[in-house]
Write a protein that binds this DNA or RNA. Structure first.
Lengths: 341, 341
DNA sequence: TTGAAAGCGCTAACAT
DNA sequence: ATGTTAGCGCTTTCAA
């Protein structure tokens, strides 16, 4: 279809061999400086662009890294991606995305596609369905093929794995502790999707903190929502149906808070006076909610950056690759007016 | 590095030629049905994965499409991308992203990378800097090379081009008209970044609507911000410094509204009683702002879908390619409590 | 029904 | 300083 100029074309033009052209274009010192200049200038003029496909085939490296991610609509995801980009672009790698929409099937297909395209490495943030199903065979396949696989943000339990995650337990503990420190006793939790590691860890952190502070756990105070706004509406309403109403809510993320806050406002409950509310993620927009939202900062950009640095180190020394390595980031409590007026 | 099994390996195993294996794997009817089955099963068992790199080289098609986009942190962008994905994944294509952060240089580099990687086509949402500089030579290069180039959401003025955009003028007109219909007379506009087509079109729509309704244009009522929350804070404050304060604001997008709303709330101005406010984009979260935000829906998913459908049609018939084609989507007014209580 | 050979664009070892 | 050759993994003509 499109007629790209090749080294052969240039060789013909200068009546020399393709290897000479190749060397000249790579500025190889063996080639006469004059020849080099002439060829380089001609190539430039003709808009010659090295065909990286042939290079990939030859060097068995595509300089491409696959990223499998549930969505790109949450700030922590885009921040993570930006963090990764900032490192790997400098190293001459490019990213290829596969968005799973939390579907197991799509995750498998993207992974397959990445393998067929011979990406040099893969980042994965595990789809919710995969966690729930507990089917990790596709990940094991990748590991068997010796392609670096790095779990970011969400991981699964494997004998060996490399992961960069956030200490969700600690984050949840911090959030809950903050509410307790404010004197709240009836603290509800809207947890994340069933079966997802991060959901469970946040629930654990919440439960542990209540226990540590001798606050009885009320099962009615634990509801569930997905990580979006809409799904938070019903569970929040339910929290306020019975006689015993919560005076604080810890939500699985900031979007869930946004949904919950809408319900609270419709019920004319004051935030934070009647109900304090805290989220998780510290989205850039959370500061601009009304009232500004307290949250847990998870340093997603940093996570992406460090995961990518780790990977580029590994890629530059594939013979001494680490097979098992876990970094857990410490989240931070961000206090705003949704908990402290 | 990683030892992928090839057709050669399989050929050796069955003491046949690579061509036979190739044909068997492609289920070519020429090959004995038994042989086919045996080879296919063996390939499956060994986890054979066709090397698409070699195919790309051979068939001069990478089945990859490049997408150049300023960022992936706005909902209209992610929706557009999702729209594109939904179409092209079905057709066996994959996407490759280049995020420009509105930088001209990065845009050029990504484009160059895409050409080196021989993507089959390119979607571009033009970086702000590029619009401002007016340097479109990199786009013309792509066109010269006969690689399909499709502008989405943001385009530039070229003799020939394919674009799928939103009628920003009309959207702005709708928003302004809505405010006028509500009886507002002192309507401010916080416009988008200087030099960006969509900014200018929205400004034009605003101005035209005021003119059509015999409302005098007050230059002090026109401020500027980028498309983010923070940059909206100062201009909004400035709007309320003088004696003559606006009673409505039309912002260049919903994020700008969020920033503006924060300022209004700090000044204890009631929304919409004292100041009505309307945005552009109709982000999924805007419904959950406090108060819920009126906005202009731009149907980004649909735009992505249609642009991708158009492209796949073109790709399947490269000889009869259309070189000049523009689709402009009609935006819709979404009324919520930030303008009507 | 199968095999041999050429070639996609490039690089690199081995000549010269 | 430059040319020759082989090969990365696959498909496809042509031949058998």
């Amino acid at each position: 279809m499109n007629q790209n100029i090749t080294i052969k074309d240039i060789a013909r033009k200068f009546k020399c061999s393709p290897s000479t052209v190749s060397r000249a274009l790579n500025n190889n010192a063996l080639i006469n400086i004059e020849t080099r200049k002439t060829i380089q200038e001609y190539a430039q003029k003709m808009g010659y662009e090295k065909n990286t496909i042939s290079l990939s085939l030859l060097q068995k490296s595509t300089k491409t890294i696959g990223v499998i991610i549930p969505s790109i609509s949450h700030s922590h995801e885009t921040l993570m991606i930006n963090g990764i980009q900032s490192v790997i672009n400098k190293m001459g790698y490019m990213l290829n995305f596969g968005i799973t929409n939390e579907k197991h099937q799509l995750e498998k297909e993207h992974l397959k596609r990445f393998m067929a395209n011979r990406v040099d490495a893969i980042f994965v943030s595990v789809a919710f369905e995969t966690s729930k199903l507990g089917d990790f065979s596709h990940f094991k396949d990748i590991q068997k093929r010796n392609v670096p696989l790095i779990f970011i943000d969400r991981n699964v339990h494997l004998e060996e794995s490399i992961s960069f995650t956030v200490n969700d337990f600690k984050g949840a503990y911090l959030a809950t502790k903050h509410l307790i420190d404010l004197g709240r006793k009836k603290i509800a939790h809207i947890k994340g999707p069933e079966g997802l590691n991060v959901s469970e860890m946040r629930l654990m952190g919440y439960l542990k903190c209540l226990k540590d502070h001798n606050i009885e756990i009320n099962p009615n105070f634990i509801k569930q929502a997905d990580f979006d706004i809409e799904s938070a509406l019903l569970p929040t309403s339910q929290l306020f149906e019975s006689e015993n109403k919560p005076d604080a809510i810890f939500c699985s993320n900031d979007y869930v808070c946004l949904g919950a806050m809408k319900v609270l406002q419709e019920k004319n409950l004051r935030i934070p006076e009647d109900v304090a509310i805290i989220g998780f993620d510290n989205c850039p927009i959370s500061e601009f909610f009304y009232p500004p939202l307290s949250s847990i900062e998870r340093k997603s950009f940093l996570l992406g950056e460090q995961a990518a640095s780790f990977l580029t180190d590994q890629l530059s020394d594939m013979d001494n690759r680490v097979k098992d390595y876990r970094t857990v980031f410490n989240p931070e409590l961000i206090i705003r007016k949704s908990t402290v007026s």
